[in-house]
Design a protein around this nucleic acid. Structure first.
Lengths: 271, 271
DNA sequence: ACTGAGGATCAGAAAACCTGAGGCTTTGCC
DNA sequence: GGCAAAGCCTCAGGTTTTCTGATCCTCAGT
């Protein structure tokens, strides 16, 4: 009697999700972050799937993991499947509560741009139930439950130093994420402010702007984010504008009545 | 400081699977059977999803469940997603072990048709690792891990009473599932064997055939299943053949080298 | 050689999951 | 009308799965 091997047991869904995330992101740690668990959990899931299949899907070495041949051939269908699942989840959510909407954006955008427009947005969409989540990175996939994203993408914006009126002499204020903005600006405007001391470096851009508002120095402003404060006179431009190749972009992650309408409204506000 | 994202709570995969199964099969009990759990577990999963969504997906009444409007709009994308997942799982399995193949068929087919041909099949596909699973019903979806199915479907076959040579006088043997075959045959051949007592009724067709082989009575044979025994002379036909509108059909559940080849081989054996 | 990133491993703890019994409502059938 | 059969619901309890947190290991770059 030849072999009558194992039963055709189904593969655990959560395990497949771990495999897909690890393959897509190129590492267990990244996958773990994506899934909101620890790397150990991802490793265990992947190991479980590999055991069920009887073949390794990843080659481990000290600096990460790579897909095996077999794994690489499986990735496209896995990704397609989880994209479909994400879409299905989205349909469920939007059908169940059409006026509930979740927006993902950078912390700086949330505080400086969305916050001041929130009342207008809610007035434009009566009944809208809005939740705003600040993320450092735009969600990598369409599976994260967000309806609309608002992040920087390719486009045209302006950089210029800003300070509170009459308080233009303080140190240079910067934040950790966009510290490169000063460099970019100087490349276009020359070595201005070179002699200034560097002030506190915040983890959040909005905190640097707060410091500038409080007269504690000069911040590097992205026009789209500080235009409101400039027109209110709470900040003034203290140097030339320099073109910047990133701009805010609002997009609906999945097609859906409300999401599309809100993304359109935001995009209109942007221009 | 990495922002701690308040998770945009993803929907649990197992819950979605329960919802999809219940929606597709029209009942929690059926879904439970499909998923291999108890109805209570399905109910709990569905309830969990409904709670997360904040809207009911099913209307319960005493004779089962129906989808709500919302649920009905969600079903297509859910089904598509789980079909995609099933396909992905299948790719994984076949990539990991290309020569491993699992066949699903009726118990009667397994015992009377597949078993005698197993050596020939393995000879035709060297290295094939075959597992055979007997199911009363063909798997309803493509998600059950089977590579090839072999069941009765629309087509042309023959029914006729069979018995061991020289032992044609015993009672009518029948099995529980195909007891209708006697009725069908009499409808075409007239009231023959009406006066015979009814012998033991087995749960498995193959047991009725065993009884016939042992000379304990007359069984109603489907030609495709008993042809081998007839040509060996172990059974003889003891009445006219009557046309029957179901025949065995082999099909590959998912496209795949081995599955397609084996299904083709089986189909060729059938004709 | 030191350091840091990324994995593996393991035990304990937490969460999710399943079962099994009992109850309720409706339908179909004497 | 009374009765049985289907289905679904709830709940308690236990079991399995899953996650974490600490520790160790390996490798690459400095």
């Amino acid at each position: 009697m030849p072999v009558a091997p194992p039963p055709p047991s189904d593969l655990p869904l959560n395990g497949l999700r771990a495999v897909e995330a690890a393959a897509r992101l190129g590492g267990f740690a990244a996958a773990a972050a994506d899934l909101g668990v620890t790397p150990g959990a991802v490793a265990a899931h992947v190991k479980g799937i590999e055991a069920l299949l009887g073949a390794p899907l990843f080659i481990r070495d000290a600096r990460g993991v790579r897909l095996t041949e077999v794994g690489a051939r499986c990735l496209p269908s896995l990704t397609a499947a989880f994209d479909a699942l994400g879409a299905a989840g989205h349909v469920l959510r939007s059908e169940a509560a059409p006026m509930r909407l979740s927006l993902a954006c950078l912390p700086a955008i949330a505080q400086l741009w969305v916050q001041p427009r929130q009342d207008a947005l809610l007035a434009a969409f009566p009944g809208l139930s809005l939740s705003i989540t600040a993320l450092e990175q735009p969600p990598a996939t369409k599976r994260h439950g967000f309806d609309v994203t608002l992040f920087f993408g390719p486009g045209q914006d302006w950089l210029m130093p800003v300070a509170a009126p009459g308080r233009v002499e303080g140190p240079c204020l910067a934040d950790a994420v966009w510290s490169g903005d000063w460099t970019t600006w100087r490349a276009g405007a020359g070595p201005a402010f070179q002699d200034r001391p560097t002030g506190p470096v915040h983890s959040l851009y909005a905190l640097a702007i707060e410091d500038a508002l409080a007269g504690r120095g000069v911040a590097m402003g992205r026009l789209s984010l500080v235009a409101g404060l400039l027109s209110q006179g709470r900040l003034v431009e203290v140097g030339p504008r320099v073109a910047f190749d990133q701009m805010m972009i609002a997009r609906a992650v999945h097609p859906g009545r409300t999401a599309r309408a809100v993304a359109g409204w935001l995009q209109r506000e942007l221009s």
